[in-house]
């Protein structure tokens, strides 16, 4: 016997609402700080290259995750090509978005790395994998040193 008695009237079953009322402030970290300041102030993209194996990381990091050697920063164009994309009709609460968002996995030129970001200025039916895209940044005075300083990537016209 697992329980000796159980509540039979469903109205007597209780549920208590709970909300996590915390918020978080995340530093970009050492490599992130270098990247986002460069993006904010100069509109330029930074990657990092492993001093031992030569793997070029994007997003940049201070260490090579494969051999744990140090890396050095290098400037890249910020352009890339679409490796995969998806069209999302709902937000994370499950509500329909007024306009679907296009997410893309973008291989970054001059690196072994990738970025996941939005695509803009294009309709889903016109997207092809392998398509070349370039970043569209916020105007300099509105940039804050965050990933959202990149508004989206757009196809090369």
């Amino acid at each position: 016997m697992v329980f000796n008695e159980k509540i039979t009237n469903p109205a007597e079953l209780r549920h208590v609402q709970g909300r996590i009322e915390l918020y978080w402030i995340y530093t970009s970290g050492e490599a992130g700080d270098v990247f986002f300041k460069k993006l904010r102030d100069e509109g330029k993209f930074t990657a990092s290259k492993c001093r031992k194996c030569g793997h070029v990381f994007f997003p940049p990091r201070i260490y090579c995750e494969f051999d744990f050697s140090e890396t050095e920063y290098m400037e890249i164009s910020g352009e890339g090509c679409v490796l995969a994309f998806s069209v999302i009709s709902y937000d994370s609460d499950g509500n329909r978005l007024e306009k679907p968002e296009i997410y893309a996995l973008i291989g970054m030129d001059g690196t072994d790395g990738k970025i996941i970001h939005l695509l803009g200025e294009i309709e889903p039916e016109n997207i092809e994998t392998g398509m070349k895209v370039v970043p569209v940044l916020k105007p300099k005075d509105q940039r804050e040193g965050k990933i959202t300083d990149i508004l989206y990537f757009k196809p090369v016209s």
Binding site: H15, V16, S28, G32
Partner: peptide, 16 residues
């Protein structure tokens, strides 16, 4: 220093 803030909406309904 650069940083990001997040105020996620995370809610539960604990079964008593």
């Amino acid at each position: 220093v650069t940083y990001v803030e997040d105020y996620p909406d995370i809610r539960y309904q604990f079964t008593a």
